[in-house]
Design a protein around this nucleic acid. Sequence first.
DNA 1: TACTGATAGTCAGTATACTGATTAATATTG
DNA 2: CAATATTAATCAGTATACTGACTATCAGTA
Lengths: 154, 154
Amino acid sequence: MKDNNDMPGHLARRFQQIAVAVFLAEVGEAGFDLTPVQYAALATIKANPGLDQITLAGLIAYDRTTITGVVDRLVQKGLVERRASPRDRRARELEITDEGRRTLRKITPAVESAQAIMLRGLSAKEGEELMRLLRKAIAAGNELSRAPLRDIKA
Amino acid sequence: MKDNNDMPGHLARRFQQIAVAVFLAEVGEAGFDLTPVQYAALATIKANPGLDQITLAGLIAYDRTTITGVVDRLVQKGLVERRASPRDRRARELEITDEGRRTLRKITPAVESAQAIMLRGLSAKEGEELMRLLRKAIAAGNELSRAPLRDIKA
DNA sequence: TACTGATAGTCAGTATACTGATTAATATTG
DNA sequence: CAATATTAATCAGTATACTGACTATCAGTA
């Protein structure tokens, strides 16, 4: 009888569960109220000023229907501005605000410490190897989810 | 600047996302409508007849507030029976039904093939190593989430 | 036994994630 | 250029996950 511990799917779920908990704990202790998903979106908006929501979704592999709510909350917190694109009236352009920039800067130590904590059972070498294997498995499975990772359209 | 691909948290999320998509696709193709979470719960109920919801939650590391809904849906699908415990009037005992047993049996090939597909980018050795590292990281972080893995109380 | 604390389960509320549909606008093509 | 297809975004609906509160019950102790 196959145990849960032999199921990569179960291990994936469990590791993610811990990763989220650690992230929220570290960030919360630093005095911020930002989820992992919101953080990734905010950082990506900062790195790609003026991008639209579909591009944002592709860069972090979120579903397009999920991104709407995530951006809603970032806007509501005053960290991001959303405005109609002048080039394509279907699209919304996203821009980080000064407040968003400030938050991102101040939150970084907590985010980094969270990444360390979630690997605390592993040696540095093992942590690297885990990330390598995850990247490899993810690359092979990229097209299997509804929200694959996408490059910026040239 | 740290990339998403260097963040174990992001990789965890992405791998889990693919794992769920693959599971649902395989199981759906086999003609069943069962989520990974429901599958794990069902298998655990079968292996531990008469267990209560808190014990079930501990065995698969689900939050106790999540398990309520999961069991609701299993009961509604006729796969599980929930009844008051005679020993403890707070608790509910869970039992798999014949229909649940049948479903579990018929769904197994799809579940196994899903586990293989989500590792298809890795060699057998790499897949084993990924699972080992995940298990190790999870063990070290077990207490960090609200829903840690728990043994059955002796 | 009465009091205190712990436990099983649920509920309301919020956030991710998806399916599938819809609207509005843009792109493509006959 | 008119018909068609595609695309950006949103919406309604469902399923995990969690926080924090609450009820009912049980267990331990003064």
